[in-house]
Design a protein around this nucleic acid. Structure first.
Lengths: 340, 340
DNA sequence: GTGAAAGCGCTAACAA
DNA sequence: TTGTTAGCGCTTTCAC
């Protein structure tokens, strides 16, 4: 017995041709029930396994979606990938992962790899490191469907799924004020990334709406880390008129802030309110438990994949409308910002 | 200009043949520097992109490694995948992900998918749900290199990378005794999974070594969850002679235990010691910070991939030695078990 | 409803 | 060093 069974083997056994076997195996409309049955039985008996590589070469479709993320080690992306993968499998697709490790060089290589592999579509969350967009433009030129999620860019006119970061920032800020805090500070992130910028804008918009003055001294620009949170608090407490609440751009930053405030024996939420962003798993377990904004990670993955599916279908037609799906942020208020 | 450029296009342009172009593109030894240069230039100019699907069909190698994990949403697996992916990319491989969602059915389908896709190797961390091993045996029969990591089985004679769970259990238990705790309890996990069983065995071995009696009442068999930790503590505190320390099979279980102990106003680590397992990210941020055992996740991914590489190379030779790599657990002692 | 024949794009054995 | 030829396993016209 040869190691790999092909449709030709099945055909020979049944005194028919590869074409017929192929049709039977693919549920082709023009095939008799009888032959189909015989083929399927023979395939089973011979332990036939369709060679998807050959199939892909001939049909021009691989059934593979390439996904580029900064790192599989970051909770958020693992979770989004989970959502993508589940939807993909349900629709008969497989998912190839490529990590950029936040490097532009790797991101570029990832795109190249996926184009070569003739994947059916590419989904990307951009690396922090930024250079030019030629790799994305190449992909577009090759008619490759692309969907961006979370980390996207305004400079490119592309289909994307993000959450409404502006609204989220607005919500977080409004909530703190509603809880009676008077001076709300914000610890921001790198402003060349749209997500972080939008959160800051949301914060500003909320203050304006609530008739509160914007004070540039109450903005600390950090690098999205525990340390940034600590440093921010040190800075804030040194101000002549320190804030009494912080909206942090992300949960780890908020965590650092909490640690530093505790270190100064400042009582949370009584004397100081904190809200973070991302709903990281640790948030509900620390004390006080951390208020935050949930980003619907798994759902984001699902939506992004569905958008991809649409693009793949539309590929034949010349439909060109760019779609931007914006998910609603979900506030999760816990002890760190709730005064009874 | 046609949408896809092939080596035939390059050949035509240079008045040569596909074979020569292919050789130039693949750094074949028998090729003149001059032709190679010309081919590479032409390829660049025409924006040629090698079709890896065609290449795979012909060469029989896809350069793809299939990875099956229970869920990309679980921290631990995201982290291992990170390790695998990094090594894979360095060695010119890509990684296909398949999630079993702890279901045997999905796991089986994953194997089937990967066999059809003719991946160069499959890496698996088994689903909790167990049935038979036919899918793994099928893969073996198809001469597919397989490496298991973390969740493996003794019933299959397979290459694997795990950490020394027995030793880890031993370490954790010994540590608690060394800190002066007198009655050490254990919250265990499903015993049909080797990892959990080994941790229990390590616990027992430590007690024996230290001349402490084993008391079956001090074992609570949970399902690896926060709730299991809570329930375990309720049970333990109801005993005539309750324990004064717990080695929990996993961090979330430990977390549940801590929450319940706090609820009973029992002081940690003064009156009660706790150590968990897995070094989940939340552990260092809760209070008291959680002692735990680190599993070297990223490193596990690296090692597993290197083992895979070896299997792929050995495939031509008939080398059949099964390798089991056992990583050292790394104790991380924090406040929850450290009495000064 | 089935068969014959061509070819997806590439690589590799054999010649020259 | 290069060209010729064949074929990886499958799908898909085009006949019948």
């Amino acid at each position: 017995m040869s190691l790999t069974v092909t449709i030709a083997d099945i055909a020979k056994k049944l005194n028919t041709t590869s074409a017929t076997v192929s049709r039977a195996l693919n549920d082709h409309p023009a095939i008799s029930i009888r032959t189909k049955k015989r083929v399927l039985q023979a395939a089973e008996k011979l332990q036939y396994r369709r060679n998807t590589v050959a199939s892909s070469l001939r049909s021009g479709q691989t059934g593979i979606i390439g996904v580029i993320i900064p790192s599989a080690e970051i909770n958020f992306f693992g979770s989004v990938v989970h959502g993508i993968e589940n939807m993909a499998n349900k629709n008969g697709y497989n998912v190839l992962i490529y990590q950029s490790n936040e490097s532009w060089e790797h991101e570029k290589k990832g795109i190249e790899t996926f184009l070569n592999a003739r994947v059916d579509g590419i989904m990307v969350s951009m690396a922090k490191e930024k250079n030019d967009y030629t790799h994305f433009l190449n992909a577009r030129q090759a008619k490759m469907p692309i969907v961006f999620f979370d980390r996207t860019s305004d400079e490119l006119d592309i289909d994307s799924v993000v959450i409404n970061d502006h609204k989220a920032g607005y919500m977080a800020t409004t909530h703190l004020v509603a809880q009676g805090y008077k001076r709300i500070a914000h610890i921001s992130g790198p402003q060349h990334l749209k997500v972080f910028k939008a959160r800051l804008e949301g914060y500003k918009a909320a203050l304006k709406k609530l008739g509160k003055p914007f004070d540039a001294k109450l903005i600390y620009n950090g690098d999205v880390s525990i340390d940034a949170g600590r440093e921010a608090v040190k800075y804030f407490l040194g101000l002549p008129k320190p804030p009494d609440a912080i909206f942090a751009v992300e949960d780890f930053t908020a965590l650092g802030a909490i640690k530093e405030l505790k270190h100064h024996n400042i009582s949370i939420p009584k004397d100081f309110g904190i809200i973070g962003f991302a709903n990281e798993s640790f948030g509900e377990h620390i004390s006080p438990s951390l208020s935050t904004i949930d980003q619907q990670t798994v759902n984001m993955g699902k939506e992004a994949f569905q958008l991809m599916l649409k693009l793949i279908e539309e590929k034949t037609r010349k439909n060109k409308t760019v779609q931007k799906i914006i998910l609603e942020p979900i506030p999760v208020f816990r002890d760190s910002s709730l005064r009874k």
